[in-house]
């Protein structure tokens, strides 16, 4: 089965570059002819995950795999991990600092949006070791 994989390094704490991986992914998904509504969901969810790696995890790697009927986005980092996943999933919950909030991030809507826009999401996290979030989108 045809499958294509894009891998993007996401730099920690670099707000200039934040969002670059999802931008690249967007224009390539368009070229493949993925439906605009699906692209939108993928990109919003991926953007949130990318930003989380930038602000909470000192960076990581975003991997996008496209198959004829499925898009899988994996966001893997070796950051501090999420202590209480249930709490982190709550709308509005955020541990972001005031400085980060002043930059316009840290509204606590990232994880809830990722869950909302993906068809399936799993969070694999260990405190002190890192976090891997896998999101699946049906095409």
């Amino acid at each position: 089965m045809t499958e294509i994989v894009w891998r993007f390094d996401v730099e920690g704490n670099n707000f200039e570059l934040a969002g670059h991986a999802s931008q690249q992914t967007k224009s390539r998904l368009k070229q493949i002819g993925v439906n605009n509504d699906i692209i939108r969901k993928v990109i919003i969810a991926m953007y949130e995950g990318e930003i989380n790696m930038v602000i909470h995890a000192n960076g990581g790697v975003a991997t996008v795999t496209v198959q004829p009927n499925l898009i899988t986005v994996v966001l893997a980092d070796t950051g501090k991990g999420i202590e209480n996943v249930e709490l982190a999933m709550k709308e509005g919950y955020s541990t972001a600092t005031t400085e980060i909030r002043e930059l316009g991030f840290g509204a606590g809507m990232g994880l809830p949006n990722m869950k909302k826009y993906s068809d399936d999401m799993t969070i694999d996290t260990t405190v002190g070791e890192g976090t891997t979030i896998t999101m699946k989108f049906k095409i």
Binding site: T2, E3, I4, W6, K30, Q31, I32, I139
Partner: peptide, 21 residues
């Protein structure tokens, strides 16, 4: 109109994108 996708059929476009890469 859509002028920028690599192919009208998604699986073909996907294959073409893989070839492009």
């Amino acid at each position: 109109t859509d002028l920028y996708t690599l192919d009208k059929k998604l699986p073909v476009a996907l294959q073409k994108m893989a070839d492009v890469e």
